[in-house]
């Protein structure tokens, strides 16, 4: 079930998001990381900012609401986790969380020539400190500026994925701008903003920026993939958002994704990435389709007459 994201060839269309805290070490005790299509790291930052946001997690029907906390520092990732992941023979996409165009460029420069980096993901949902904290992804101009600068300093064989959230108003336009600026693929994030009130205090939780993930947002994610695929047929898409089972992944591929990322699903069931892969392979075989490519984007074509 090979697939590709730009120049990056993956052995499986099912990847795992390592989570907001993990870099795969705990997960590796439960599943062999090399058997996955790949692993996307938490978004690495330039400077440690411990304690600025309290991690919070709340359960809501078919979803989890989390506070977005600063990721690990890139220095920590480089010194410790990346060499370890390389030894696991995992295909690693390093996610970057810069707070300015310059920071993104600095992060990308530090990754030049680092072994075991199969791709870069630019997390554009974070605040752009040069634009009063407006998220990069809400401006085609700022999102494409980040993409262009990172693309320029990154070796051409390492694909750059622009990560956008499924809920943004100008999704297609921002995606197009990133593609024009050199993005090799799009990564559609598996969470959208949300809020809950604490049952006792009747105040919002998480206090800072809650993000909803899980099957609750799967229809939002599917629609985002479908829209981008219809408008930009040549842009590879790594999709996420509530993938728990093989049929979920199949739907994302049919809507136009080239690969899917299991995130929240792997929190409930760490074996989910493997079971999703196996179920996907079984359903392709059942449909007598030799490759995952044969199902990608089929939702855009009329149902063939029997």
């Amino acid at each position: 079930m090979r697939t590709s994201l730009g120049s990056l060839v993956l052995s499986s269309p099912v990847l795992v998001a390592a989570g907001c805290a993990g870099t795969g070490r705990e997960l590796a005790q439960l599943i062999p990381l090399a058997h996955l299509g790949g692993l996307v790291t938490p978004s690495a930052v330039l400077h440690a900012d411990a304690g600025s946001v309290s991690p919070q997690l709340a359960e809501t029907p078919s979803g989890l609401l989390t506070a977005r906390v600063p990721g690990p520092t890139l220095a920590g990732l480089l010194g410790d986790d990346l060499p370890w992941l390389a030894r696991q023979r995992a295909t690693v996409i390093v996610s970057l969380g810069g707070q300015s165009v310059d920071e993104f460029e600095l992060l990308a420069q530090q990754l030049r020539g680092v072994a075991g980096v199969s791709g870069l993901e630019l997390n554009l949902a974070g605040p752009d400190l040069d634009a009063q904290g407006t998220p990069f992804e809400e401006s085609p101009l700022r999102a494409s500026a980040v993409t262009a600068r990172v693309r320029r300093v990154t070796p051409s064989h390492v694909p750059v994925l622009a990560r956008l959230s499924a809920h943004i108003a100008d999704l297609v336009e921002v995606a197009r701008a990133c593609m024009t600026a050199g993005a090799d693929a799009l990564s559609l994030s598996g969470s959208i903003p949300g809020m809950l009130l604490d049952a006792q205090t009747l105040r919002p939780v998480p206090v800072h920026s809650g993000w909803l993930s899980g099957p609750a947002i799967r229809p939002v994610g599917l629609r985002a993939v479908y829209r981008v695929r219809a408008a930009l047929p040549a842009l590879p898409i790594l999709a996420a958002g509530g993938v728990m089972t093989g049929p979920d992944a199949l739907q994302y591929l049919a809507a136009g994704a080239n690969a899917v990322c299991v995130g929240t699903g792997a929190l409930r069931d760490p074996l989910a990435p493997i079971t999703v892969h196996n179920a996907l392979a079984a359903s392709l075989a059942e449909r007598r389709l030799p490759s995952a490519r044969d199902i990608m984007g089929c939702a855009h074509a009329p149902i063939p007459a029997r």
Binding site: C20, R25, E26, L27, Q29, L57, E59, V69, L267, R268
Partner: peptide
């Protein structure tokens, strides 16, 4: 909330070995 290191639902505010405060995961 997961037990496999990914969710950060079990974060605990501690003094690290370097003397600085940080969040660590109770499951790890």
């Amino acid at each position: 909330a997961c037990g496999s290191g990914g969710c950060l639902g079990c974060a605990v505010w501690v003094t690290g070995q370097d003397g600085n405060p940080r969040w660590v995961r109770a499951c790890v």
